[in-house]
Nucleic acid binder design. Structure first.
Lengths: 212, 212
DNA sequence: TAGCGTTCTAAACGTATGTTTTAAACGTTG
DNA sequence: CAACGTTTAAAACATACGTTTAGAACGCTA
């Protein structure tokens, strides 16, 4: 019976899903509210009803999954820390880097859920100066600060400054991989194809480990 | 006499300068033609007069300096090659990577000319799927193809696929550094500041050399 | 100076945008 | 059923957009 008209509350969810995808593929300004509402099959004014404004929608898309991803990072860090303590040694560089990169890369390669789209959305949100995303960065900064002591411990030869630079570079590799994953085949004249999440993660982690 | 009204042809140049800067800081769609013409102090229709359309303007901004930058890269490669031949050895990995990264990084840190702005524009152009920038990439691909044989020779243990992935990652580090240079101070709680072009280049080259 | 192509100006065009408004439909609670 | 708060609907709002047009101003050459 109620198969045609979807139930109430998931209109909001559908808007988030659709706009997550649109914002992942194009800039904030070039995605119109009408574009979103048409594809989400809701009324034009639904965006302003649920999110107050287009800006509000953008932030809502971000918030919906950001906390979860950073939680996954900290969880991996925590597990690595426990393993290290049990073995009586330090957390390895590889584990640290892997903890930072695995969640976004795995999400990126996740076929089932909408996580893949979100990761591309995130990488693009970094570029949207206009849509006040300072809080986007703040949350990530907090997470990274939890990692820094570990880096310091096992890379005592590096200054704190060096460590921040390296984290900065790592994020660069990751974001670029995310944003331009489809271009690797063009760059390589189709020699390279997009691989599994594990392979891609390992490639990235190797590259960044050696860079440190 | 003619100090007040600028001479003829530099209206076109002023439009390019202004839009280069605006496109470097915001997305294609969020920069309006009126925005450009107002800041360039020219009539609204000047953009369409000189460049046909807003798209045409965007491409013109790209073309103006792209060839020069890629020429600089190839020039550095050529010089390194000559040095190597004179010494009877191979071009070092460091020199190869340096040849790829030095031009954009030096331009980025160049204070005098408008090159700094252009580099940020370039990094953003990569993201503009909408504004058909396939030719942007094509030219870079051609340049990289000139580098690949050198990489192959000195890193015979790597497959061609590996090399393309590494180039891909290098571009990621570079573009992210370019796009988010100002954020390193936020990330590091102001421990890191933007340094000189040489220092920044060396940091990047070191990171990428080790990653290879 | 007269003519002519180039450059600049002002105004208007049609369309698309984000948002607001007014009211209808809905679903739960009394 | 009646009343209420929530959600959806259609229409209109004012504004901003890229582009076009028609003509004036300019600078050069004959």
């Amino acid at each position: 019976m109620n198969s045609k008209k979807p139930s109430r509350q998931d209109a909001r969810e559908r808007i988030l899903d659709v706009s997550e995808e649109l914002f992942a593929n194009a800039s904030f300004a070039s995605v119109s509210v009408r574009n979103v509402t048409t594809r989400a099959d809701v009324n034009l004014s639904a965006v302003n009803y649920y999110f107050g404004s287009k800006q509000g929608l953008f932030q809502a898309v971000y918030v919906r999954r950001a906390t979860l991803m950073n939680h996954e990072r900290l969880q991996l860090l925590h597990e690595a820390d426990e393993r290290a303590q049990a073995a009586g040694c330090d957390v390895s560089l590889r584990e640290l880097i892997s903890a930072m990169l695995t969640p976004p890369i795995f999400w990126l390669c996740d076929q089932e859920k909408g996580y893949s789209v979100y990761i591309r959305f995130l990488a693009r949100a970094y570029l949207e100066e206009a849509s006040d995303m300072s809080n986007v960065l703040r949350q990530e900064v907090d997470v990274f600060d939890r990692f820094v002591p570990y880096f310091k411990k096992i890379k005592s030869g590096l200054s704190e400054e060096d460590i921040y630079w390296h984290i900065h570079f790592m994020m660069g590799v990751m974001h670029h991989t995310i944003n331009h994953l489809h271009r690797i085949s063009l760059l390589s004249h189709k020699a390279c194809a997009v691989e599994s999440g594990e392979q891609l993660r390992d490639r990235l982690v190797n590259f960044c480990c050696d860079g440190f």
